[in-house]
Design a protein around this nucleic acid. Sequence first.
RNA 1: CGGGGAUUAGCGUAGUGGCUUAACGCGCCUGCUUUGGGAGCAGGAGACCGUGAGUUCAAAUCUCACAUCCCCGACCA
Length: 412
Amino acid sequence: MLQSQLFAKTKKEHIAEAETISHQLLLRGDFINQELSGVYSFLPLGWRVHRKIENIIRQELNKINAQEISMSVLQPRNLWQETGRWDTIDPPLFKFKDRHHKELALGPTHEEMITDLVRKRLRSYQDFPLYLYQIQDKFRNEMRATNGLLRTREFFMMDLYSFHTTKADLNDYYKKVIGAYQNICQRCGLEFVMTEASSGTIGGSESCEFMAIADSGEDRILVCEKCQLAMNTELGEAKTCKHCDAKLTEKRSIEIGHVFKLGTKYSTVMNAVFADEKGEAQLIEMGCYGIGLGRLMATVVEASHDDRGIIWPKEIAPFDAHLLALFGKNSDSLDIKQKCDTVYQELQEAGIDVLYDDRQNISAGAKFAEADLIGIPVRLVVSEKTGDRIEFKKRDQQKTELITINELMKKF
RNA sequence: CGGGGAUUAGCGUAGUGGCUUAACGCGCCUGCUUUGGGAGCAGGAGACCGUGAGUUCAAAUCUCACAUCCCCGACCA
């Protein structure tokens, strides 16, 4: 991608409304654009990151045999009345009427929808287990949106639902999902812990929150030094882990995901049953699992930045490399241009996704500052100083090295 | 929803009854110049001062209402 054509204008100055670091940097880097309180559009840089996170989630969920679907955002009132959540879910639904005065809601989550979908199709124990997920826009009428992407009223969520014939099978899959979440967090460069949590208005017998460790996080948790378990500070004054007796230390965190064992909560009220081996009706055991994509993205920024800007982990960076052309006064700038074009082309042919800062009238300092702000993990410079070589620098390191194009190819 | 704050050009701000033709910095446009850490000079465009009422000889400035945004509370992905 040529930066001269990229739809992004970074901002040099501080943005007053954004007090949270991730909000500030995502706005300054022009990853997102605010439309309303708690409602954001994703611009090319931000959407690239978002898509990479999506794909990591897809890969990890596909590994545990989940199938991707996409349910409608528009949801009918009657399903929500079956579970009694039409008026009680918190945060409340965004509700409206269609032209026939029929009441609808924008989906904040899909337990009702998917339970309805599944009860109509899964009739026999032989149809189980089943794992379905989607990555889709969700709407929640929050009391108040806060901290940029950390709490919005519209956001993309991965929501996975599992259906089982027995509690034991649910428990097994629940563990697999936790494993998938761990992989997702690791690939997104996040340090995380799990806490046992209250189930809120989703309900169910057991649930865990996935907490990413970030110094600027709002939640305070006590983390075990040995295992990856943690507890909310409100839940107790304990000094040692109840599982392994190791010491607990207080850290700050952000909740990026949740896993719930729903059990038969929804199948009971919505009469979702299957025929067992004896032909007798049994309630479906369910689990549901969610990750907020925008929040995860903002959390990565909270956890990975310096005073110059964002430091994207490799797997979710908007580009693999940022190539800067610095046009000097003494050399023929056509020369630099040609060299840079060649490097750009060769990297592209090798399948490396490059943002190429080809802009003519931008100073070297401005290009460096902008590159640091955007946070692509690898910076490449071609200038009169680099001769027939290319300067290579990682965003999270200070040192630079001059290397040949062949050496450069081996870096990726 | 309760409490607090804000609203002046794309962004950040100053101006708090008449001295204002609404100013400054960033950004934007033109030209020249410049290119290793958000360059320089010169010129230029861009604002019904959030909306509506009111007070006053006179309102960006005072009053009231409304809207929007931010922060704290609550809840969450």
